[in-house]
Amino acid sequence: MKISRPQAPAYDSFDHLATMVAVLRPDGRCVYVNATFEAALGVPRKALQKGDVFDWFVDDTTLRSTFASVVNNEFSTGRFEALMRRPPGGPADPLPVHVIITQIDHGEQVLLELVEVEQQARQERETRTLDQARVTKELIRNLAHEIKNPLGGIRGAAQLLEMELDDPALIEYTQVIIHEADRLQALVDRLLAPHRRPHIVADVNIHEVLERVRSLVLAEFSRGLKVVRDYDASLPEFRGDREQLIQAVLNIMHNAAQALSQRRQDGDAVIILRTRAGRQVTIGKQRYRLALELHIEDNGPGVPSEIRDRIFFPLVSGRDSGSGLGLTLAQDFVQQHHGLIECESESGRTVFKIQIPLP
Rank of each mutant, 00 (worst) to 15 (best):
P357F: 01
M20D: 06
R5Q: 12
P194T: 01
I177E: 10
F313Y: 13
D93I: 15
S234R: 11
G89T: 08
S222R: 03
R64D: 08
D52P: 05
I271H: 03
I154Q: 09
M84K: 03
H295P: 05
V58W: 07
V53I: 14
D27T: 07
T328D: 10
P96T: 06
L245C: 02
P87L: 09
C30W: 03
E38R: 04
A121T: 11
L191R: 00
L235D: 00
Q286T: 15
E118Q: 08
Q123C: 04
N299D: 09
N149C: 12
A219W: 10
M163L: 13
A259R: 06
V204K: 03
Q265I: 08
T328Y: 11
Q123H: 11
I140M: 14
G42N: 12
S4V: 11
P9V: 11
D230N: 15
V217R: 05
A158S: 12
E126T: 05
G89Q: 07
I177H: 03
Y173K: 12
T36M: 11
E342F: 00
M84L: 09
V53F: 08
I200N: 14
A169Y: 13
I246S: 06
V43Y: 01
F333M: 09
P194N: 04
T102I: 10
A144E: 02
L63E: 06
L290Q: 10
V110A: 04
A248H: 02
P26Q: 13
S347L: 00
V115Y: 07
D55Y: 06
D266P: 06
F37K: 02
Y11P: 01
A330Q: 02
P96M: 06
D60T: 01
Q244H: 00
M1D: 15
T77Y: 08
F57L: 02
R310E: 10
P357R: 04
P87F: 13
H207S: 12
N34C: 11
R349C: 03
A269K: 06
H337W: 01
V270Q: 10
D230Y: 08
E172S: 08
R45L: 07
V201W: 11
V316E: 01
I140V: 12
D167M: 08
A144Q: 04
H145A: 12
A68N: 13
Q335L: 04
R79Y: 15
Y231R: 08
G156Y: 14
N251K: 06
R25V: 05
E211I: 06
D166V: 12
S261P: 04
S222D: 10
L165K: 09
R5V: 10
Q159L: 04
E118V: 02
I272E: 06
V71H: 03
L216S: 10
A68K: 12
G322S: 06
S65I: 14
E346Y: 01
L294Y: 11
L161K: 07
L250N: 13
H106S: 15
D27Q: 05
V135G: 12
T66H: 13
R155Y: 08
I296T: 00
I147T: 10
R141T: 07
R276K: 06
K226I: 13
S4I: 09
R183Q: 14
Q244F: 10
K137C: 15
R45Y: 10
R25F: 10
R212D: 14
S234I: 11
C30T: 03
T62W: 00
E237C: 11
V217I: 15
M253P: 03
A248L: 07
D15K: 05
L151F: 05
Q7V: 12
G302L: 00
